[in-house]
Design a protein around this nucleic acid. Structure first.
Length: 275
DNA sequence: CTCCTGTCCTGCCGGC
DNA sequence: TGCCGGCAGGACAGGA
């Protein structure tokens, strides 16, 4: 499920109940998600205080008292829910991890498909972990622009859509926002990655920033699994121009939105607007 | 290297 | 109504 905007909204939701507070108890309900939970997971977290949260690509990094960071990836179907202090704690299917905080809040990680993952790294060398060492630039980061994007895309032989999904090219983009940004920039998803330069690259960089920041402002996109930590739905899915709109009419050209498959993933686009 | 396919897992939706 | 195939926001291993 979650791409950059969804991960960002989840992180922002978690921050107020985690930052500066101790974990009083961790209830781990199974040994693994996509990969095993860290060894002695509970022992390494219980009694420790969260120092700060940040996002890198589709990962949340939570610095913990004592020098470790808890790293979380939501996979396709992972979500967090916060039960405020005083609320009854009821758990259900696929609630794999339950954090009880000293402020009384309960934080539950739910993940039906278990494609999510959690691991620990030393906070001071977070960026050396393989997940981050090869990761591309943050599209919402300072200084990201068309020139940087063009540089990342120019040595690739495949289509631009596939390149945008590659986390080592650019961080945080997934299937929805790749489709939406290419539409907004008027670039065909089948266009060769290496031909994105100059004004076209500027348009794509601007479109990525716009669609991602608009989506964050909308609380992300809720297709089935994504929810805010208070259980509310994001609503950016109502702003999709092409994603999941095969057969519908492009509001700009009147043409029909097409669906194709690239690298095993659905791509939606308007053949007339996108060249 | 880079690129594609298959796989992990569960749930949901549409078609018959 | 019920069953079954296909598909889903991601990442990675393995093979070409």
């Amino acid at each position: 499920m979650p791409e950059l905007p969804e991960v960002e909204t989840v992180m922002r939701g978690l921050a107020p109940v985690l930052n500066g507070y101790k974990i009083t108890r961790l209830d781990q309900r199974r040994p693994d998600l996509r990969i095993p939970f860290p060894h002695d997971f509970a022992a390494r977290l219980e009694g420790k205080c969260f120092l700060g949260l940040r996002r890198r690509g589709k990962y949340i990094l939570a610095a913990i008292e004592g020098g470790d960071s808890l790293v979380v990836h939501l996979g396709m179907s992972g979500s967090f829910k916060i039960l405020p202090s005083g609320d009854p704690v009821q758990t259900g299917p696929h609630d794999h991890l339950i954090l009880m905080m000293e402020n009384g809040a309960t934080v539950i990680y739910n993940d039906p498909r278990r494609f999510g993952m959690m691991f620990m790294v030393a906070t001071e060398s977070e960026e050396n972990h393989p997940a981050f060492a090869a990761m591309g630039p943050e599209p919402l980061g300072n200084g990201f622009n068309g020139e940087i994007l063009a540089c990342r895309l120019k040595n690739r032989s495949g289509p631009v859509k596939t390149a945008l999904l590659n986390q080592s090219v650019i961080a945080g983009i997934g299937n929805i926002y790749a489709c939406e940004a290419l539409y907004m920039a008027g670039i065909s998803p089948v266009r060769k990655s290496s031909t994105i330069a100059g004004a076209r690259a500027e348009a794509l960089a601007a479109a990525l920033k716009k669609v991602l920041s608009d989506a964050i402002d909308s609380g992300g996109s809720s297709l089935r699994d994504h929810k805010l930590v208070n259980g509310a739905l994001g609503y950016f899915q109502h702003h999709f121009r092409v994603y999941n709109r095969e057969g519908e009419i492009c509001p700009e050209t009147g043409d029909t939105i097409k669906r194709i498959v690239q690298a095993g993933r659905s791509t939606f686009y308007c053949p007339r607007k996108q060249r």
